[in-house]
Simulated scan of single mutants.
Amino acid sequence: MSDETNVAADELRLFIERIERLEEEKKGIADDIKDVYAEAKANGYDTSIMKTIVKLRAMEPHKRQEIDALLETYRNALGIA
């Protein structure tokens, strides 16, 4: 193997190892989030509503307003108060 190939292989290996470490961290964080939802559920909270709130809070305000308007339009069309 040439020096250039070795350097490229080393760089690729480092990228892969970094990604693997981040994937492990991501799994750990996902497990932590799952634990928080389980704790909230044990305390009587509706976790599906909590997940919806988390998604809404992550949205840009204009996007959230657009969704609210469409939801209201659809509810009115179907006669849902």
Rank of each mutant, 00 (worst) to 15 (best):
S48A: 11
L22T: 12
D46K: 05
A58M: 09
S2P: 02
Y45N: 10
H62A: 15
A40S: 05
E60S: 12
K26Q: 14
K51L: 08
I29Q: 02
N6G: 06
I16N: 04
E25S: 13
H62D: 14
L12A: 15
N76A: 07
E23G: 04
H62C: 06
G28Q: 05
M59P: 08
E24M: 05
V54M: 06
A81I: 14
S2G: 11
K55P: 04
E25W: 00
A30H: 05
H62K: 11
I33L: 07
D3V: 12
M59T: 12
E4I: 12
T47K: 03
K26E: 15
L70K: 07
A8E: 08
D46W: 01
I53E: 15
S48C: 06
S48T: 06
I16C: 02
E20C: 06
G28I: 03
A9R: 13
L70V: 12
E39T: 10
I49V: 14
I49F: 01
Y37I: 02
E39N: 08
Q65S: 15
E66N: 08
K55T: 12
T52W: 00
L78M: 12
T5D: 02
I49M: 07
L78S: 05
I16V: 14
L56Q: 14
D31A: 15
K34M: 10
K55A: 14
A69M: 10
D31N: 11
K63P: 03
K55Q: 12
L71W: 02
V54Y: 00
I49D: 04
E39A: 08
G44D: 05
I19W: 00
R64K: 11
Y37Q: 02
L71A: 13
T52E: 09
K41G: 03
G28W: 00
R21H: 04
E72D: 09
L56A: 14
I53H: 02
I53T: 13
A9C: 06
K27S: 14
G28D: 05
